[in-house]
């Protein structure tokens, strides 16, 4: 593992407040990748084997709806993460994640990370806490959008 990779991992907001050992363990499963605009980080139904920490660019989370094409559910950007299907069986992507522009990210091998989390409970808990925080934020934002606040709610 290069020091450069460890520095990249450590600098990502997702890793804030993780200890030195955890950062090192995560860095051991990580590689630096770039996606060209329009390319897929993951595709619905595919094997969920990667956890992405976005460093730059925007990624759309979408689903293909016949007649409507690719419907974007949410966009995420630098500092966000993409994908948590690698964490829970059956390790399969539920949505497409597509680079909207040049996307730079840290790709972490899911299987590698799972093994390290199992054998190192301190990393496992830190990782789960961080993923839960992200999940909670996304769930709350999604619930807020379900309220359809800008919609026309007058009594018809």
């Amino acid at each position: 593992m290069s020091t450069a990779m460890k520095d990249l991992v450590e600098a990502h907001p997702f890793m804030t407040s993780m200890n030195e050992e955890s950062i090192e363990l995560v860095s051991g499963c990580a590689r630096n990748v770039v996606f060209a605009p329009g390319s897929l980080l993951c595709a619905e139904g595919g094997d969920a084997d990667t956890f992405y920490l976005l460093r730059r660019g925007q990624v759309s989370i979408s689903a293909h709806v016949p007649g409507r094409g690719s419907v974007v559910i949410e966009t995420v950007g630098a500092g966000d993460v993409v994908g948590w299907s690698w964490l829970v069986p059956p390790y399969r992507w539920t949505f497409d994640a597509r680079a909207m522009d040049a996307v730079g990210c840290i790709a972490i091998d899911g299987a590698c990370l799972r093994v390290k989390a199992l054998t190192n409970p301190s990393l496992g808990f830190a990782l789960l806490s961080k993923v839960s925080m992200t999940l909670l934020e996304r769930l709350q934002a999604t619930r807020m959008r379900l309220l359809d606040l800008y919609g026309d709610h007058r009594v018809k």
Partner: peptide
């Protein structure tokens, strides 16, 4: 800018307005 529901022409951000705050 961000929207709750995107059409295929929209190449901007999709999500709650608070997601614009961080960056």
């Amino acid at each position: 800018l961000t929207v709750d529901l995107a059409t295929s022409e929209w190449d901007g951000r999709v999500g709650l307005v608070t997601t614009l705050l961080a960056d």
